[in-house]
Amino acid sequence: MMRGILYGVGLGPGAADLMTLRALDCLRKVDCIILPRKDEKSLSVSWHIARETVGPIPGQERLSLNFPMSRDPKVTSHAWNIAIKEIKDRIFAGKSVAFISLGDPFIYSSFIYLYEHAQKSWPEIEIKVIPGVSSITAAPIAAGIPIADGQERIAIIPAVYNKDDLRTIIRMFDTILLMKASSVMSEIIEILESEGLLDKSVYVASATMDKEQIVTDIRDIKGKRGMYFSMVVIAKKNHSGVLFGNGEKKE
Rank of each mutant, 00 (worst) to 15 (best):
M2W: 04
G4H: 06
G4R: 07
G10T: 06
L11E: 06
P13L: 08
G14P: 12
A15W: 04
D17T: 11
D17Y: 12
L18P: 05
M19K: 08
L24F: 10
C26G: 07
R28G: 06
R28I: 00
R28V: 00
K29G: 01
V30R: 11
I33H: 12
R37K: 15
S42Q: 13
V45I: 13
I49M: 15
E52W: 02
E52C: 04
T53L: 15
V54I: 11
P56N: 11
P56V: 05
I57V: 15
G59F: 02
S64G: 07
S64M: 09
F67W: 03
M69G: 08
K74S: 09
K74W: 00
T76I: 05
S77E: 10
H78S: 13
N81I: 00
I82T: 06
A83L: 07
K85A: 04
K85R: 14
E86C: 10
I91Y: 08
G94P: 11
G94S: 11
K95D: 06
A98Y: 06
F99A: 06
I100H: 09
L102Q: 14
I107K: 12
Y108H: 07
Y108S: 09
Y108V: 00
Y108C: 01
S110N: 13
F111L: 04
E116F: 01
H117F: 14
A118F: 13
Q119E: 13
S121N: 10
S121A: 12
E126T: 15
I127M: 14
P131G: 05
G132K: 02
S135V: 06
A138N: 06
I141S: 15
A142L: 10
I145N: 05
I145R: 08
I147N: 03
G150A: 05
Q151H: 15
E152D: 07
I154G: 09
I154P: 09
I156V: 15
P158W: 01
P158T: 02
P158I: 01
D164N: 09
I170S: 02
F173M: 06
F173L: 00
F173T: 02
T175L: 06
M179P: 08
S182G: 00
S182A: 12
S183K: 14
V184M: 06
S186I: 01
I188A: 01
I188G: 03
E190K: 14
G196Q: 06
G196S: 04
L198D: 08
K200L: 03
S201E: 10
V204Q: 08
T208G: 05
K211I: 00
K222H: 08
K222P: 00
K224R: 14
G226F: 04
Y228M: 15
Y228W: 08
S230H: 03
S230T: 03
M231E: 07
V232C: 08
V233Q: 04
V233F: 04
I234Q: 09
A235R: 14
A235Q: 04
K236I: 04
K236P: 01
K237W: 06
L243W: 07
N246S: 12
E248D: 10
K249H: 09
E251G: 09
